[in-house]
Nucleic acid binder design. Structure first.
Lengths: 195, 195
DNA sequence: CGTCTATTTGAATGTACTCAAAAGCGGTGG
DNA sequence: CCACCGCTTTTGAGTACATTCAAATAGACG
């Protein structure tokens, strides 16, 4: 059954009985997006959390100079949303679109609110999800502050090999906060060092 | 009573009855630190979450070049810990020390675990704390990627005026990921623009 | 007052960006 | 199956942002 991945994801942190499972899956909304399709547009309200069943999404922010800065990638078995907008109800500050054809399960803000009350275990689950997200972002801040672009790139390759294989150089550069031209230079240097 | 600040902090998100309050306060450990005293040392296990009752703390990471990179500040009414170490039990990757004489209330990992089970509302409370921390760090990543040092500095002044007044330039530079020399230059430019 | 640290200033340098142009690659239609 | 189009990646020259190092000045604290 198609819910098995998301249920397994949840079972890493909490145990649900049959009733709780049905309650949870009943509020999930399955959606398909084609490559390049937009899931969330900056300025609109973000009312869902997305669980990626299959495919690849990216969240990015557009600055004044029209540069795109990638906030995060999300492939199979990742959760992604504009947490700021989702939590506050204010306009989204990031865009989310599909890097590949993608299937997601969406959890609506209101449904999640109900879920917290009817199945409090979900408070624990999302506490842990948030905890991990916080830790991840804090590490990224430290890396951005303390490492040069070349080291950040190598670190990225080690940390997310599954992304590195799958994503075009341009996207990785944007995630690292450097230009594609410069990443191309770094990559060339790296091959020289190996040979 | 000295617990009034921390209880008010908690009451922003959950309502506790008398029994739950006493249960909570009974596990708090009050500690005082002198200016420059070390609260957490990199490499050691971090077993507590700190609520700052009074004073100012800083969390920083030391890179290979012995540069200090400030991860966060925490003044009155802030929570601070090495969440990575606290959650995983692995050695801390950051240091925490006191920028001023400081009073904190510490919540031990085991006590928090018990609290989650005996008073599940705390799952909600810390879910929200983690959510906010995640959002904050994600915004910081975006800012670090998309803004020049000068804009990051102005942004910092707007966002945390209470820090800006209280903290030496050197510390702010470290938080922004630039050298104190360069921040000094930026500041000089700013005064010229105003006059 | 003296000592220690923080801040300022300036010159030389390094890291990463901009702009422009060429080369590579994938998909589409004839 | 090939030719063309659009997008990604590479390459290089010139430039901007930020660092390093060194030295002078200013502040804080005992």
């Amino acid at each position: 059954m198609e819910y098995s991945d998301i249920l397994q994801n949840i079972s890493k942190h909490i145990k649900l009985d049959e009733y709780e499972i049905s309650r949870f899956t009943s509020v999930l909304v399955r959606k398909e997006f084609k490559k390049n399709e937009i899931i969330l547009k900056e300025g609109l309200q973000c009312n869902v959390i997305n669980y990626v069943q299959q495919g690849a999404l990216r969240a990015f922010h557009v600055d004044q100079d029209i540069d795109e800065n990638i906030v995060m990638f999300a492939i199979n078995d990742w959760w992604i949303t504009d947490m700021y907008s989702f939590v506050t109800g204010k306009p989204a500050i990031i865009n989310i679109d599909a890097l590949e054809d993608t299937i997601v399960f969406q959890l609506h803000r209101d449904d999640l609110g109900d879920l917290y009350n009817s199945v409090p275990k979900f408070e624990r689950f999302f506490r842990i999800v948030m905890q991990n997200a916080y830790i991840r972002e804090q590490l990224r801040v430290i890396e951005n502050l303390s490492m040069k672009a070349e080291d950040r790139y190598n670190n990225f390759l080690n940390k997310y090999p599954q992304f590195a294989q799958r994503l075009p150089l341009k996207q990785i550069a944007s995630y690292l906060g450097i230009t594609p031209e410069f990443l191309s230079v770094l990559r060339k240097r790296a091959t020289k060092k190996i040979t």
